[in-house]
Amino acid sequence: MFSPQGPSLRELAVQALSSVERGYDLLAPKFDHTPFRTPESILGATREALAELGPFGAGVDVCCGTGAGMEVLQPLCPGRSTGIDFSAGMLGQARAAHPDASWVRGDARALPFGEAFDLAVTFGALGHFLPAERPALFAEVFRALRPGGLFAFPIGTPPPPTSVGHWVTLGFDVAMRVRNAVWRPPFVMYYRTTPLVAVRDDLVAAGFAVRAVPLTPLGRNSDGSPRCRLFLGRKPA
């Protein structure tokens, strides 16, 4: 499915009926051949925006998956670059692709770091956390950053109700809620649980000074809003 190298429909079904961790262990060998991997356009736009805010020392990719975020971290962080994820399968793929980075298996809600990094990023992972879990996640990233450190992540602007994207994401989230209501273990992955105002409020509550900038290379929606914004949370020096 998606490409000759991607997972089959059966493999995706097995993954979707597994836990999040087990599902990504199963998907890991073919993950980079699916649309779920963060696109190069988003990685490039994020890297360009962050290049104006450095220099940085050490960097960490939270919920790193197969390591796509290293395309952002390694050019910007001359110190060590680290990825953390709870899927051993995804980390295995990341380690093979970027053997010069450090890889840690762990839960982002209990990061095994303390004031160790100048830059933290995450890509496409917030949908794996329920809204009630997001404040604790942000507090852990805050704790892992050195004073003055920066937490950065892109979020797509919700598509307008008249767009196909609106109904696709709504349909996906409804299907996942039905699946999780009738099947265990749950598979937490939602597209509509990260409203921009709520994300900003949770960052502020964690202690960050927050601003969001449009990633202009990614274009605009039909209503003029940017398709994607880069949230920037700065830990006070």
Rank of each mutant, 00 (worst) to 15 (best):
T169Y: 12
A132F: 08
D201F: 07
T157C: 00
G224K: 01
R177M: 11
T194P: 07
R179F: 09
T194F: 09
T157K: 00
P135W: 01
A198K: 05
T216Q: 12
F151L: 09
V197H: 13
G165Y: 02
T216E: 13
P135F: 00
L137M: 08
A175D: 14
W183C: 11
T157H: 01
W183I: 14
S222M: 08
D223T: 13
R229P: 00
S222D: 15
P214C: 04
R200F: 09
V141I: 15
G219F: 05
G148Q: 12
I155H: 07
L218E: 02
A152S: 02
P161E: 05
F142C: 07
F153L: 05
L196T: 10
L150K: 12
L215Q: 07
V199F: 06
A206Q: 04
T193M: 03
D223M: 14
A139I: 12
A206W: 04
A152Q: 05
V188E: 12
A206G: 03
F151K: 03
A209R: 03
V210S: 15
C228I: 08
I155F: 02
L145T: 12
R227P: 05
P160D: 12
D173N: 02
L137D: 07
V141R: 07
P135H: 04
R177L: 08
V204Q: 10
V182Y: 12
L196Y: 06
W167Q: 01
D201G: 12
D202G: 07
L215Y: 10
R229L: 03
V141E: 02
R229W: 04
V164T: 13
V199E: 02
L215G: 05
F153Y: 06
S225P: 00
G149W: 09
V178A: 12
L218T: 07
N180S: 14
V164W: 09
A181P: 08
H166R: 04
R134N: 11
A181N: 12
F187A: 12
F138Q: 02
G171D: 02
I155Q: 14
G224A: 00
T216N: 06
R211H: 06
R192Y: 02
R192V: 02
P226S: 02
V164N: 10
V174T: 14
F208W: 05
N180L: 15
D201N: 08
D202M: 06
D223H: 10
E133D: 09
